[in-house]
Design a binder for these strands. Structure first.
Lengths: 345, 345
DNA sequence: TCCCTCGGTCGAACCGATTCGACGAATCGG
DNA sequence: CCGATTCGTCGAATCGGTTCGACCGAGGGA
């Protein structure tokens, strides 16, 4: 099968030939790793511009042993990304682009473990950022065993041997409960993430629960915690049955931003006006909190900053895999918006 | 500098040596491109399992001339992804994973053009899916010139020489207007995407406007069209000034899902109840429409299907770059939810 | 019995870059 | 004026796979 000329990609040898130098000289002119005379350099550059030459990434990666690419392990598409997760992805991609790195996406979990394996073991990436980490997470175990530099957005139960950034859900939810208690609420509920996630050992779910229980005990409140799938319908169903079983409730704290709209629906349908009759406070991406109607009083998760920090940490680990591990735990303050008020007496 | 043993990655030569065969035999055992006796195959597999060997992706890509990776060009993170765009990304990643392809993300536009160039010209990917296509789009021009297979989610003004999938905003918005007209509304507004996007020649903005104008003329309505940035605050500000200038309005059609929540706020603040006093209808991701309160009557964009189709089309082009171009234009029906009703007289 | 085919394997070339050692010419210090 | 550097360049080796041509032995058809 004949290949046509316009299909032939130029390589470094073609550049060298046309510029009348050796291939190594072209390489040195490009990388600057050895001196090249100005005239030669200019001649080479002219040929490169003319032919639109770009070094073949695979060849370079093969020889250099690094790919200038990082992997980003995300939850599979079937479990819809929350607004916060989207914020992480966007900021990681952005920060990586600033460092001239490309980002390879890998949905993991469920049926997509081949993708994870490819990314981790094929020397396709120089490092990995893993989202949605469980308390016991075998992907983390795999990564540790492989020796590939990685950083978690989230952390395992015992995150000693890893670098990570995370949101301090335990502190945040405790703070939410204290905020409600300060307003005089005595009967409060926690709307957590989905039962599946919690059962699978999803960290934020467990830590939110712990913070809730602690704060409820500290303030002598009556608390009830429920799990809820990550969408508005579930939020509504969940809240309606919650209110039916516990009519004495006057406030909800939530880490489930995707369900928040459903909580609103349910309150409206059962005749409770927010914040006059009922208070809601949560942990959410700012964008999301402001989009709700009325805007949600919530701790605004700095997703952009966390994503950028994760990339930073990863670059550090790639540069020096022997350096001590670092981490970042953030607990942003609660932004008072329109959904909390004094308890009705 | 000494390398430690545990750091030494195993390669095909090591496998060959331990299995007592040549490197080519290992390769044939792995790829199945030539027969290998069952005993030999088994022996090789045992060694591979023991050492956890995976072929180096860069070496393979270099020799085979393909990377088993596709590029996904997304808008830069600074312009927040809408829920619909997120749906595209997720479904593309998912569909690619099913085809054992990896996805390289490239934010394009603004400051990130280096990333786009790397992806397109470095032979890093076998093909590209481009989102957010403008009526005149120089990325499309670049891709056409490069000869790299690509598929657009969206299309240029004259999409002859390309394959694409797109949403038929013109038809959809016209359908929305007809729906409102059928309900007796005579004064309707279009809340479009941002003025910057429209000025930059963003297709959906222009096509929505065209459909709006056409339908308004066909039904003899009075129509006013405004642009609005992609967030709730802008939606609110926009709608408030719209209502102040045109108090006679009784309905809004919108393609700006991100602004929809703000439209609700504005209507509530000006004392209009939906759908009793005012109707809203739009084009949005189902998830988003259902999340709004009350749920938005809207044409539900099948993002998952479109993303999967885009991958399909791309696979076709990679397999046979000479095949005729194909495209898919979808116009999903309007799902009646809770935001449209008869015009008050 | 001879020749051909085919299954199974090997060695060598190749993909397109980087990098090391070497070498001639120019420069510099003493 | 001479030996030691330095500059600029070249050729060859290398990274880790795939693939082509060749070879050997077994089996089948005439």
């Amino acid at each position: 099968m004949e290949r046509f000329d316009y299909d032939a990609r130029v390589n470094i040898g073609e550049i060298a030939k046309r510029a009348g130098v050796s291939r190594s000289t072209v390489s040195y002119a490009l990388t600057g790793r050895r001196p090249v005379s100005p005239e030669t350099k200019q001649r080479i550059q002219a040929v490169i511009d003319e032919l639109g030459y770009r070094p073949n990434a695979a060849a370079r990666a093969l020889k250099e042993g690094r790919t200038r690419t990082i992997g980003l392990v995300i939850p599979p598409a079937s479990t819809r990304l929350t607004d916060m997760q989207l914020g992480f992805v966007a900021s990681v991609v952005d920060a990586a682009a600033r460092a001239d790195l490309d980002v390879l996406l890998s949905p993991s979990g469920g049926e997509h473990d081949r993708s994870f394996e490819r990314v981790v073991t094929g020397q396709r990436v120089d490092g990995v950022i893993v989202m949605e980490i469980r308390l016991e997470d075998d992907r983390v175990a795999r990564l540790m065993a492989s020796g590939l530099p990685f950083v978690g957005i989230g952390r395992t139960r015992d995150p000693q041997g890893m670098s990570w950034v995370d949101i301090d859900y335990e502190t945040l939810i405790a703070r939410c409960v204290h905020h409600l208690a300060d307003l005089g609420h005595r009967d409060v509920a926690l709307v957590n993430r989905s039962a599946e996630l919690v059962a699978a050992g999803y960290g934020p779910g467990h830590r939110a629960r712990a913070g809730f229980d602690r704060a409820v005990a500290e303030r002598g409140l009556r608390g009830v915690a429920v799990c809820c799938a990550d969408d508005a319908q579930a939020g509504q169903a969940c809240t309606e049955s919650l209110l039916a079983e516990h009519p004495e409730l006057t406030a909800i704290a939530t880490v489930n931003e995707a369900a928040a709209a459903g909580v609103y629906h349910a309150l409206a349908r059962t005749g409770r006006e927010v914040p006059r009759d009922f208070s809601i406070v949560g942990v959410a991406a700012r964008h999301w909190a402001e989009n709700l109607h009325p805007p949600l009083t919530a701790a605004d998760v700095p997703a952009v900053e966390l994503g950028a920090q994760a990339v930073d940490l990863l670059l550090g680990r790639i540069a020096d895999p022997a350096a001590p591990h670092r981490h970042l735990l953030v607990a942003p303050p609660i932004s008072l918006r329109a959904t909390t008020g004094p308890a009705r007496r």
